[in-house]
Nucleic acid binder design. Structure first.
Lengths: 338, 338
DNA sequence: GTCAAAAGTACCAGCGCTGTCAAATGAAAA
DNA sequence: TTTTCATTTGACAGCGCTGGTACTTTTGAC
């Protein structure tokens, strides 16, 4: 039978209430006493019973991570999860992972979830971070939440990185290599990742004085198949692009596949770059030039911020995580012939 | 404020205890009454408070998934997680994910984890499934657990699939294409996945009457880099193999990269196959021939079995999940010239 | 040395549920 | 019909902790 708070109190010669104060970080305990109590806790290997804590304190010590359908098996989400779990480990909080599809009955579903788990805070991964109805419901339920890469300014706490600038950087890199006709396979409309990355693409073209050609932008949906389809459309043009910027790595892989099917050399005949730097970027050959999105870091930050906001309800914070270009072998100067 | 069991009892005109019986699936409630209570539960949108339940019932309704260092960002684990979460959703149980490194202080670490979360059951992913010390400690703590792909017969509940046969199948496929000199980049020693896949490789050779040549087997560690290194060693031979079987997909990608660096065509000059069918197998070009390991399904099964074993403590069950070959474009008949 | 503020104690209710065990019920037996 | 006994239901304590109130002790400023 594990030790109880009572045992610790007896061991340290104090009241249970004082032990409780120490456990909960209340500042009204003198250092000397606190030290003694902490020693007793360690000696007895005491760990508070989370259920009793939750029940009495009306808190669950749970942070829920809401992400979209995992069927995609998206490594983006995996990385987020890793970050969230890491961050939780350093706190008394625990993570609940919840794949969540925002269908018609969103409100009922979220209510059910909240009723069942009673999380103290939520973290919304894209695209939920942009779902106004969802955010509204959470506000009504007076739940704290953090969003990741939210488009809307509604969210009090948001962790993002400058996707627009990152996209501009990577397209700028293609331009600096000498590319002038650059295709773009865009993401799913409605996702922030669609708009920002497209804007960045346009920014880079503008900066280089290259006219924007709408027909060089093909809509995609972040899947490998849509990347292939996008590449097919672009490469079937009379003047195909010499480089393609895909709005994520999976689509970039699709582009590379289409190139492969046609016997085009990457990067010799076609430069390809992606976005996100998911693990696959390292595994494909040639290695994929992409932008490293600090998913783990963002997961961590989301947890930290949202927990802080429990203590400071007025907290507003829009954090921008740093990103990095990862220049690998899938991009090079265009072939001489043109 | 959400409904409490008391509210349901009042609404249905019974005692709280009877409601509790219905909630916990006790069979000693008359059908008529049970129906009435279930109706009340639905009307009031009642969901039991998990903390109160745990506290009173001395159960946590938690299933812990112990997996190895997630730094690898392994999609194997991701798939397992998805399966485990799915399975939990249909039960009152929740999953706790716990990346866990089995270092020296394993016992202390596992004790700490158990003290903190008090899971009712554990699921051990490889390589923990083979860690005798860990299993022993769990036995001492009288915790129920299921292992996934455990080598040892110690585990009462294990979910696996016939890796040896699967490996033999895929190497058999290479042989049937006409390959005779087939290299193998093996996994990390100690992992079941190392021994089984190597045995399968040998089985297939034996069956085809091809002599086993130890020098064609290069040790690896399941990483991309070790796959590259293994391929390097194999391709530097005076008579390089015409096909390489890597013990997992990441290493197969490393093999493909090494081929790419040398200007070898896959599958024209070198056939490559992997194992696991992680998402990357679909993303690389050419698509990777591999064995589909039903990770999700195995995660689900592990949860189901281990929960069943809570009700039936004597339960022993070694389940074999079905696997499938995924023949893609990375394998073909060897070049004519030899 | 005085006194207010801070730090700590003692005590108890109660969070929402389940386990124990006794009471009520109902069907079969007498 | 009454008795018997298994089945079904209920009353109540208590799981381990925190919040609150009321009170005592310590601290440090003057």
């Amino acid at each position: 039978m594990p030790a109880r708070i009572e045992d610790v109190a007896a061991h340290a010669g104090v009241s249970t209430k004082t032990v409780s104060r120490v456990l909960n970080g209340h500042t009204t305990v003198r250092v000397k006493l606190r030290t003694r109590i902490e020693a007793s806790i360690r000696t007895l290997n005491y760990v508070p019973n989370p259920s009793a804590r939750s029940l009495a304190g009306n808190r669950s010590y749970l942070v829920a991570l809401l992400y979209d359908n995992p069927a995609a098996g998206s490594s983006y989400v995996m990385e987020l999860i890793v970050g969230v779990l890491q961050a939780c480990k350093e706190t008394p909080y625990n993570a609940v992972l919840h794949p969540f599809e925002a269908t018609e009955d969103l409100v009922a579903k979220i209510d059910g979830f909240v009723a069942q788990h009673r999380p103290d805070a939520l973290i919304l991964a894209p695209p939920h971070a942009n779902n106004a109805k969802l955010l509204q419901r959470l506000d009504e339920l007076e739940l704290r939440y953090a969003t990741i890469s939210s488009k809307s300014r509604q969210s009090p706490i948001d962790i993002s990185f400058d996707e627009r600038k990152a996209a501009a950087d990577i397209v700028g890199h293609l331009i600096s290599l000498g590319h002038r006709r650059i295709g773009h396979v865009a993401g799913l409309k409605g996702h922030g990742a669609h708009a920002w990355r497209l804007s960045g693409y346009r920014d880079a073209l503008r900066k280089a004085g290259i006219a924007y050609d709408e027909s060089l932008v093909i809509p995609g949906d972040f899947t490998f198949a849509s990347g292939m389809a996008g590449a097919k459309a672009l490469l079937n043009r009379r003047h195909p692009p010499t480089a393609i910027f895909a709005a994520n790595d999976d689509m970039a892989c699709g582009v590379m596949r289409e190139g492969y099917e046609r016997g085009l050399a990457v990067p010799g005949d076609l430069s390809v770059c992606g976005f996100d730097d998911t693990p696959v970027a390292l595994l494909v050959s040639p290695g994929l030039t992409t932008v490293h999105q600090p998913c783990r870091e963002m997961g961590r930050m989301a947890v930290e911020s949202v927990l802080q906001s429990i203590r400071e309800p007025d907290l507003q914070r829009h954090t921008r995580a740093p990103y990095e270009m990862r220049l690998r072998a899938s991009t090079a100067a265009p072939a001489k012939k043109r």
